[in-house]
Computed example of a mutant assay.
Amino acid sequence: MKLLLNQKLRRYLLLVVVITVAVVEIPIIAIGYLTKPVPSDTIIVLGAKLIGNQPSTMLRLRLDEAVHLYNEGYAPTVIVSGAQGQDEIASEASVMHDYLVAKGIPADKIYVEDKSYNTYQNLLNSKSIMREHGLRQAIIVSNSSHIRRSLVLAQQLGIEASGSPAPMADNAYLTAKQYAREGAAMLSLLVLRQ
């Protein structure tokens, strides 16, 4: 009898976990693939880890998406956002700035926000830059796994924004890890909002 109860409890818990993962992960995946940018006043590129003084693969993919958007005329300015992490030799924003300039975006069209350590701070500080320069609408650029949470936070902060998902790294382990991380972050965001 006790063994049967333990099996039922395990099945029930497994079902709860599967449903929770589906409810949280499916919207993250869907929005990461379906979101399209809308022409705006600026492009906000959210920071990610550096490798030495170079963008990591995930960050490079974000920056390349911003270059594409800028060259296609989606927005006349770019905000790069990210502080210097403890294990980094420069701020993410300064490396992002240099990368974009090397790709042909004029330096005077790039605003540097180098005080933020997380997505909430990225967007809050970018909103201040937008206000300072009279920018009303933004396209948020991050990797597909990160777009949903970025858009939810932007909405909470009162930023009128669309998203432009950059691809994920061509690495199954890294991709799975990023989606799991975002699932946990979205779950925490949804729980804390209640």
Rank of each mutant, 00 (worst) to 15 (best):
L100W: 07
I29A: 06
S91F: 06
V17Y: 02
L46S: 05
D98Q: 13
I105K: 05
L69Q: 13
Q194W: 12
Y33L: 03
H133P: 09
I110A: 02
R131V: 15
S56K: 05
V38C: 00
G104Y: 08
R62M: 02
L192I: 15
N122S: 03
L69S: 08
A166C: 06
Y33V: 03
S94H: 10
A138M: 03
A185I: 12
A161L: 04
R11H: 09
A166R: 07
E72D: 14
S188G: 04
D87L: 02
G104L: 03
K2N: 13
P167L: 00
I110P: 09
L14W: 12
A172P: 14
R181C: 01
T119K: 00
I28Y: 01
Y120C: 02
A169N: 11
D41E: 03
V23N: 00
L9M: 10
D170R: 13
S126N: 09
D41F: 01
V45S: 01
V45D: 04
L190Q: 10
A48M: 09
H133M: 01
L174S: 12
S145C: 11
A172W: 15
A66D: 13
N53C: 04
S162N: 08
D87F: 10
S188T: 15
Y70S: 02
Y179G: 04
T57M: 00
L14Y: 12
P27R: 02
M130Y: 07
S126A: 14
I26R: 00
I43V: 15
Y74M: 08
D41G: 04
A107Y: 04
L187S: 13
T20E: 03
Y117M: 11
Y111P: 06
R136K: 14
R181P: 04
A30Y: 15
G85C: 07
L151N: 10
V80C: 01
G52E: 07
V95L: 02
I89Y: 01
G85W: 12
A154S: 11
I19S: 06
L135G: 09
I147S: 00
R10V: 12
S164W: 09
M130Q: 12
S91A: 06
D64T: 07
L63K: 08
K115N: 12
E182M: 04
R11E: 12
L153N: 05
L100G: 08
Q84G: 01
L13E: 07
V67G: 03
G163Q: 05
I28K: 01
N171E: 13
I43H: 11
N125H: 12
V112F: 06
V67R: 07
I26L: 10
A184I: 15
E88Q: 09
A48L: 07
Q137D: 14
N118A: 03
A83W: 08
L3R: 15
E92H: 03
I129E: 02
R149G: 05
Y120P: 05
A90N: 15
N122I: 08
I129H: 06
P37R: 06
L5D: 13
I110W: 10
V38L: 00
Y70F: 13
S142G: 14
K49T: 14
L69N: 13
G134R: 06
E113P: 09
A83M: 09
T175V: 15
S162T: 15
D64H: 05
L50I: 09
L151P: 13
I105P: 12
M186Q: 07
A75F: 04
Y12V: 11
L189E: 14
I110R: 10
T57L: 00
